[in-house]
Simulated scan of single mutants.
Amino acid sequence: MSGPQFGPWHRLSAVSVHAYTAVGVVLALLMVHMSYAGEVETVLWLFLAAMIIDGSDGFLARHFRVKEVTPGFDGALLDNIVDYITYAFAPMVLLWSTGYLPDGWWGGVVASVPLLASCFQFCRSDAKTDDHFFVGFPSYWNIAAFYLIVLGAGVATTTTALLVLTVLVFVPIKYVYPSQTETAWWLTMTLTLVWFGLYALILMQYPSPSLWLIALSGGYVIYYAALSLRLTLKRRRGHSGAAVSSEAGASARTRDS
């Protein structure tokens, strides 16, 4: 039995989705260039553009069935390449080139630590679980850089924050995948869109943004972390309960035999 037949429009739509994802590479190039030019605000706007693309290309890929229409092209690999350079590499370039990291080669060392940790995470076969979670801190270095910059963090604070988040990459907490995790999906997506709006408002006020706006946007970060931790603990308790029930059942069968 042959599979579905796709016409030129379907193929054009699928290829367009891949091209839309690939635009992130151009944004990353601009991020690096603008970082060395000292255009911090421009880079932060580019971060927002990259996040919007990353948050919407999955919907488009599923809608246009790109896996079926273009089976010879690995869209997931493309997405990982773009995410690595926009979420990890470019933010470290921005922080290092604009004086948020230690001077000299120590700054390069600090910048390299998150990049190496992200290499590990992006190559993990279980980095994204079947129930749509990220395992370990999901390399949101662009968001970390955003807050460090708008809050005017010093070198010590920035370095400490990056090292702490690097450790969290290896801690098996399951972080919510906002556009796909089913639990509290509507609430999470609504708050995500609100956060995008707050991000833009903060940048409009940069370099002297309202602390109230920053705190309000930080509420979403707290919600995201709390929901991720709660769901992680809930699933662990569920697995523990299932294991205890299984052991009890095995013991009962042994006594009956």
Rank of each mutant, 00 (worst) to 15 (best):
H18I: 01
S112E: 08
A144L: 15
Y224W: 00
Q121V: 10
V221W: 00
E68S: 13
G58I: 08
S13Q: 09
H239T: 03
L233W: 09
S16F: 04
V32K: 07
V23E: 07
E182V: 13
R11K: 14
S56Y: 12
L101R: 09
M92E: 05
S208E: 13
K174C: 07
L27E: 04
S112Q: 08
G58D: 11
R62L: 03
G219M: 05
F196E: 00
L151T: 10
Y206D: 04
M34L: 10
P138G: 04
Y175F: 15
A88C: 14
V221N: 05
P91L: 04
Y199L: 10
V25F: 10
I149W: 06
S112C: 13
G38P: 04
A49S: 12
T188K: 04
G104M: 11
L198N: 05
V176Y: 03
Y199C: 05
P71R: 01
E41V: 07
P71I: 01
P178Y: 14
G241W: 06
R237M: 11
C119L: 14
V110T: 09
G152N: 08
F170S: 01
G3F: 11
E68R: 08
L193T: 03
L46F: 02
F134I: 12
L44N: 00
V244A: 15
G249T: 03
L95G: 08
G58R: 09
F133Q: 12
T159D: 02
V110H: 09
E41P: 01
Q5V: 15
K234P: 06
W185K: 13
L12D: 02
P114D: 10
P207Q: 07
T98S: 14
F73N: 01
Q121P: 00
L115D: 01
T188L: 08
P114T: 08
V17F: 03
I173W: 02
H18Y: 06
F122G: 07
